[in-house]
Computed example of a mutant assay.
Amino acid sequence: MATVISVEQARQLDQKTIEEVGIPSLVLMERAALAIYDNLLADERFNLKRVLVLVGTGNNGGDALAVARLLHTHGFAVSLLLVGKTEHRSPQMTKQLEICEYYQIPEVPLTVDFSQYSTIVDGLFGSGLSRQVAGDFAQVIQRANASGSSIHAIDIPSGLNGDSGQPLGATIQAISTTTVAYVKTGMVQPGAARFTGTILVADIGIYLNDRYEE
Rank of each mutant, 00 (worst) to 15 (best):
A146T: 13
A146V: 13
A146M: 14
S147M: 06
S147H: 07
S147T: 07
G148I: 05
G148E: 03
G148D: 04
G148Y: 05
S149A: 13
S149C: 04
S149M: 03
S149H: 00
S150V: 07
S150R: 09
S150G: 06
S150A: 14
S150Q: 12
S150D: 08
I151P: 10
I151F: 14
I151Y: 11
I151Q: 13
I151N: 13
H152P: 02
H152W: 03
H152G: 03
H152A: 13
H152Q: 12
H152R: 10
A153I: 15
A153M: 14
A153T: 15
A153H: 15
I154N: 05
I154F: 11
D155Q: 15
D155P: 15
D155W: 11
D155R: 13
I156T: 11
I156W: 07
I156G: 04
I156C: 10
I156H: 05
I156Y: 02
I156Q: 01
P157Q: 09
P157L: 02
S158R: 08
S158M: 14
G159C: 11
G159H: 03
G159T: 09
G159N: 08
L160R: 05
L160P: 05
L160K: 06
L160M: 09
L160A: 06
N161M: 06
N161C: 12
N161F: 01
N161V: 05
N161P: 12
N161Y: 04
G162V: 14
G162I: 12
D163I: 10
D163Y: 08
D163R: 01
S164P: 12
G165C: 07
G165E: 03
G165Y: 00
Q166S: 13
Q166G: 05
Q166K: 15
Q166A: 12
P167T: 12
P167S: 11
P167R: 06
P167E: 06
L168I: 09
L168T: 00
L168F: 03
L168V: 03
L168A: 03
L168M: 08
G169E: 02
G169C: 03
A170I: 11
A170E: 13
A170P: 09
T171E: 07
T171S: 12
T171Y: 04
Q173H: 14
Q173P: 13
Q173L: 09
Q173V: 08
A174N: 07
A174F: 00
A174R: 00
A174D: 01
I175Q: 14
I175T: 10
I175F: 01
I175K: 06
S176E: 02
S176F: 01
S176K: 04
